[in-house]
């Protein structure tokens, strides 16, 4: 089944039309999307670096993960909202861009991994997890989110 009819339906939505017709809305959404990137990047990296024994290595993983959790969720929500709005303005174009599909493949895995396996590891007793699993989780996390980021940047070059 092709998703093209759905993309076509989005293309005709009023919201996308409004964004397309505005000079400043698209760049404003892009800016918001970038600020969300910085917040997510910081919240993810802070904990992944700690899992690797870098950065704030004197602090328990669990308390750091808890501390940045609201910022991580807020950043992801800002990204999803600004990203969805950017998408409504050019869905058919996105449909034909490989980088868009790369990003959309990485995204659900990155989010699912973050809130299942990674969350379990960051909230667990550190002595029971061990450095190998911690590092593996950090590598997978950075890898998945990098896939989202690089795919996203590449949409603009297509």
């Amino acid at each position: 089944m092709s998703l093209l009819p759905f993309f076509g339906w989005v293309q005709d939505l009023r919201v996308g039309e409004t964004i397309r017709g505005s000079l400043w809305m698209f760049p404003a959404l892009e800016s918001l999307h970038l600020l969300g990137l910085a917040v997510i990047g910081g919240a993810i990296l802070l904990v992944d670096m700690r899992l690797f024994g870098l950065g704030l290595s004197g602090q328990p993983v669990r308390s750091l993960a808890r501390d940045v959790q609201p910022w991580l969720i807020g950043g992801i929500l800002a990204m999803l909202l600004s990203g969805a709005l950017l998408f409504t303005s050019e869905p058919i174009k996105c449909y034909h861009i490989t980088a868009f599909w790369v990003k959309m493949t990485f995204l659900p895995f990155a989010i699912a991994f973050t809130f299942t396996i990674r969350r379990k590891v960051t909230m667990a007793d550190e002595r029971k997890i061990g450095p190998v699993w911690s590092r593996l989780v950090a590598i997978v996390s950075v890898g998945l989110w990098s896939g989202v980021g690089i795919g996203g940047r590449w949409i603009g070059f297509s």
Partner: peptide, 26 residues
């Protein structure tokens, strides 16, 4: 753009500590 995560992401975390909005016990 992606180096933003390292530079600004971590700078934001530091700033959030300075304003008392994150890592308040660190």
């Amino acid at each position: 753009v992606l180096a933003l995560c390292l530079f600004l992401g971590l700078a934001v975390m530091f700033d959030l500590r300075l304003v008392g909005a994150a890592m308040r016990q660190v």
